[in-house]
Design a protein around this nucleic acid. Sequence first.
DNA 1: GATAGTAGTTGCAAAATACAACCACTTGGA
DNA 2: TCCAAGTGGTTGTATTTTGCAACTACTATC
Lengths: 159, 159
Amino acid sequence: MEPRSGCPINAAVEVLGDRWSLLVLRDVIFGDRRHFRALLTGSIEGIASNILADRLVRLVEAGVLTRGTAARGQRARYSLTEAGIQTLPVMYALGNWGLDWLPGSEELRARQRFMRDEGPAFVEELMDELRVRHLGAPPKHHDGPGPFERLEAALAGRR
Amino acid sequence: MEPRSGCPINAAVEVLGDRWSLLVLRDVIFGDRRHFRALLTGSIEGIASNILADRLVRLVEAGVLTRGTAARGQRARYSLTEAGIQTLPVMYALGNWGLDWLPGSEELRARQRFMRDEGPAFVEELMDELRVRHLGAPPKHHDGPGPFERLEAALAGRR
DNA sequence: GATAGTAGTTGCAAAATACAACCACTTGGA
DNA sequence: TCCAAGTGGTTGTATTTTGCAACTACTATC
C-alpha cells in the first residue's frame, strides 16, 4: 500500500475514499455502533459482512479505529482514535455538500441540517463528546444535555 | 444509479467517494487543468486514460463539471459548476486531515499548510476566484495578487 | 444441552481498475 | 499538399476489488 503521491488530499482519499469507510465511521460516530453486528445490521445502505470486516481491519491499520482485544468468537469493541474523531469535519463538509447538491430523504437530511444550523462550534462540541466516549477523556460539565442528546432531541421533535 | 440511502453523507460519497474523482477535481481547481490531456499527463498519481474519461463523464452527469461542447477530435473544455466549486471545503477538510494524520512529501504538503494557515476566509476567496474563471462571474477588484497567485508565490518562496 | 447471538471467513460471480495499444480528427509547418 | 505532432478519447485484456450467500467457531442464555 505505498502511496501514489505525497499529496495530503490523495493520502486522505487513499484511506477514506471508497464507498464504505466513511459510512462505517458515520455509524460509529452518530449511531454509536461499537460492535460488528451493530454496524452490520444497523447499516441503512446494507453493507456486506466481508466488506465490513475488511474495512474495520483497514481503518484499524490506518489508525482511525482501535479494536478492543477479543479472541475469536468474542465481542470486539471498536473505538475511535483522535484521528478518527477528527474525520468529523470531513463528514461535516461532505454532508453539507450532499445536502446542497444532491437529493435525499428529509428524515435523513434533518441531522445534517441541524448540524449546519448549529455551525462549526457544534462540531467541536461533538468531537469533545467523542473524546469522552471513545478515549476516556474527562467529561466537561456543561449545563443541560450534551450535543448528541440535543441532536437526537431535534430529530425527535421533527416527527 | 439509484442511491443506497437518503443520507446526505452517503449521497456525497456516491459521487465523490472513489479513488479518482476528488483528485481530478483537485487538478482542475488547483492546477487549472481544463482539458483531457492536461489532466491525463499532469496527474501525479498517474490516472489511466479510460478511468479519466469515465470520471469526467460521471462528474458531468453528477452536475459537478460541465463539458464545453466539442465534436469528436476537438478540444473539449471542462468547467466547474457551482456544485463543483463548492467541493472546495470538502477538499480543504480532507487535505487538513491528511496533513495531520498521514505522511506525505513536504513539497506537496506545503500547499495544504498554506491554505490552513490562511483559514476559511481564504477558501472563500479561492471559491470566488473559481467563479470568475469557470462561471464567468465579474472579477472582484482586490488590491494586489489573487488567491491562486498568493498560493503559488508562497510555494515558490519555499524553494 | 439445545438455541440464539456474535464475530467473523470462505467461495464464487460480477464489477471496477490498470495498462497498453489504437483510432479519428485538427492544427501547424515544409 | 502532405506529413507530423497533438488532442480527445476507445478498445482489449489482465488484475483487483466488490457483492452476495453460505458457513464456521465460539459464547451466553435458557
